[in-house]
Design a binder for these strands. Structure first.
Length: 555
DNA sequence: GCCGTTTTCGGCCCGACTGTTTTCAGTCG
């Protein structure tokens, strides 16, 4: 069992203990231990009992739980309490604003154990009558359940990619030619349906062949001989598989990769309906249009973009020379500064920018001034090791509710660069969020605006911003805008990259890595960046270290 | 449940907000 699974199991146990109302200090201690384990850089499963109790908060009882998880794959404590908990309770815990205590109350007082019943209770004004609840809580819960229901059948790009790979491998064992199409082939940040093409002349036999794959569950009512529709076992994401005759392969592939709006713009059906084509390039050549890469085919702004640029100018992963928004064990990261830097160097990057949390982010062990100094001293020492690699001194400074950053100018001046990000008080309306973020951009020490809207895909909408004004301010103040490459965020939304390019604003593809593995998240960033037309020449971390430093100086 | 002692029982991560309350519990980042 991996570290994440162990920590997840313990965190689940904490929540369930709280729902059931066991001693709060018992659960708080387990939460504390889980945090310690989460930060442990090595493999937890290879630790001995004596080594485990070295971790703060871990004692005899918790060692037993951990060993159970490692050796048996489950824990009797967790299994026991799960047995006493209706499964729907776990869904209630996902609702923002409802913690375990409130969920426990809903369960005990109203007998509600799933989202549907809770929604009904909101509609009937029964939730607001509970002690500690009110109209506002009820309204929030109602809205959030609706949000969850809308998104319940969608997956983030990273998760959908894994599921798709699994299915593709199986399809390949059954068909000569298979291809991925739909939103995933266009690198969409959120996937609402997986689309595949399989080549076959046996239209009527293909459905049975697909059904012979373990896990494929057909929705017979929605399927036809030409299109299999259904799901993969254990997932709600809709899947469609089109059975295509060999001579129609390229034509069908083009149709299924592009967004319908792109097909409308190029009048695809008028020109190519039923026609055999050799490749996607032929489509654009025939129509005397510039070639559009698959991920851009949205019917959005790709043709405006292609009047000024060519696809060869788009950023690629191999163009990246470093990464600029990362965390270490100084704040809430899992790997040390040196480990993170060495991992970047091993990947062939030229620089590693550390941007740990600032002092306001106490929950993330944000750096007070003395620890900023200590970190920078360590950086100076480490930098003496290499002549081909540099650690840059950054910080992810919190944008306070009034728009100021949470260090004095004397401290801010010590950094090579500052990533300014909002972490608290996210629920602002546009009248408050705009002046807040604009003020942060105008701060002379701000270099990069971090995850601009604070969104968490499928979990939390970002706060509202007038992005044209934000981008204008970035340009005017020599600030780069972050494309946070964590698949949980992918914020800046790719739709605004087109505008950033028009205005000549540098976009920084930042992994927001909290451990070595997170650095590769830049791949997701590059995927959506290309979708939005990000040019190599305007990618901040495709600059070499000298040019980067010049940018930071706002010279 | 764990820790750390003023060594065997009392106290437990932080700061701020929100929506409840009428001084604070619950939640979040």
């Amino acid at each position: 069992m991996g570290n994440d699974e162990i920590v997840d199991a313990l965190e689940l146990l904490v929540k369930l203990w709280d729902v059931h109302g066991v001693n709060e200090f018992k659960s708080k201690n387990l939460a504390f231990a889980a945090r310690g384990l989460d930060k442990y850089p090595g493999k937890i499963s290879s630790l001995s009992e004596t080594e485990l109790v070295q971790i703060p908060g871990v004692g005899k009882s918790i060692v037993k739980i951990i060993l159970d998880l490692i050796q048996v794959g489950s824990s009797s404590d967790l299994d026991g309490i799960l047995e006493q908990t209706p499964p729907g309770i776990l869904n209630l815990l996902k609702i923002k604003g409802l913690g375990p205590k409130k969920v426990g109350l809903i369960w005990k007082e109203l007998g509600i154990t799933d989202l549907d019943d809770l929604l009904t209770a909101c509609e009937e004004n029964r939730l607001e009558q509970l002690k500690g609840f009110g109209k506002a809580v009820q309204e929030n819960v109602q809205l959030y359940i609706q949000f969850l229901k809308q998104n319940s059948k969608k997956l983030r790009l990273d998760k959908a990619t894994h599921l798709s790979q699994l299915i593709l491998e199986q399809l390949k064992t059954k068909f000569n030619q298979v291809a991925e199409a739909g939103e995933l082939s266009r690198n969409c940040e959120v996937i609402s349906e997986l689309v595949f093409l399989v080549e076959s002349t046996d239209i009527f036999g293909s459905g049975a062949l697909i059904n012979s794959i373990d896990g494929m569950e057909e929705d017979i009512k929605e399927s036809s001989p030409f299109t299999w529709r259904g799901i993969f076992h254990g997932h709600l994401l809709a899947i469609q598989i089109h059975v295509i005759a060999p001579d129609q392969w390229e034509n069908a592939l083009f149709q299924q990769v592009a967004h319908p709006e792109h097909l409308v713009v190029i009048q695809f059906y008028k020109h190519f309906q039923g026609k055999a084509i050799a490749s996607d390039k032929e489509v654009y050549e025939t129509l005397a249009l510039p070639y559009i890469i698959p991920e851009m085919r949205e019917g959005f702004k790709e043709f405006e973009w292609s009047q000024k640029h060519q696809s060869e100018e788009l950023i690629q992963y191999s163009d990246l020379k470093g990464c600029l928004h990362n965390h270490s064990t100084y704040s809430d990261g899992k790997n040390t500064l040196l480990e993170m830097a060495e991992a970047c160097r091993a990947q062939g990057l030229q620089y590693f920018g550390i941007a740990d949390h600032s002092q306001y982010a106490a929950y993330a062990n944000g750096l007070k001034e003395d620890r900023v100094l200590a970190q920078q001293e360590e950086i100076d020492q480490l930098n003496a090791r290499w002549n081909d690699f540099t650690i840059l001194k950054g910080i992810e400074a919190d944008i306070l509710p009034d728009g100021s950053l949470d260090y004095d100018a004397s401290v801010l001046a010590r950094f090579d660069y500052v990533v300014a990000s909002v972490h608290a008080q996210l629920a602002m309306d546009i009248d408050r969020s705009m002046p807040r973020v604009l003020k942060a951009i105008e701060n002379p020490y701000t270099s990069i605006l971090g995850h601009p809207t604070g969104r968490l895909l499928l979990t939390r909408a970002g706060f509202p911003l007038q992005m044209d004004k934000i981008l204008d301010a970035c340009k005017a103040n020599g600030v780069s805008i972050e494309l946070n490459a964590s698949p949980y965020r992918l914020d800046l939304d790719w739709r605004y990259i087109y505008d950033a390019m028009d205005k000549g604003i540098y976009v920084s593809i930042n992994p927001d890595a909290h451990q070595i593995e997170g650095i590769r998240d830049m791949e997701y960033g590059v995927k959506v960046a290309r979708k939005g037309g990000l040019l190599r020449s305007l990618t901040l971390n495709a600059l070499n270290v000298q040019d980067l430093k010049t940018f930071f100086k706002k010279a």
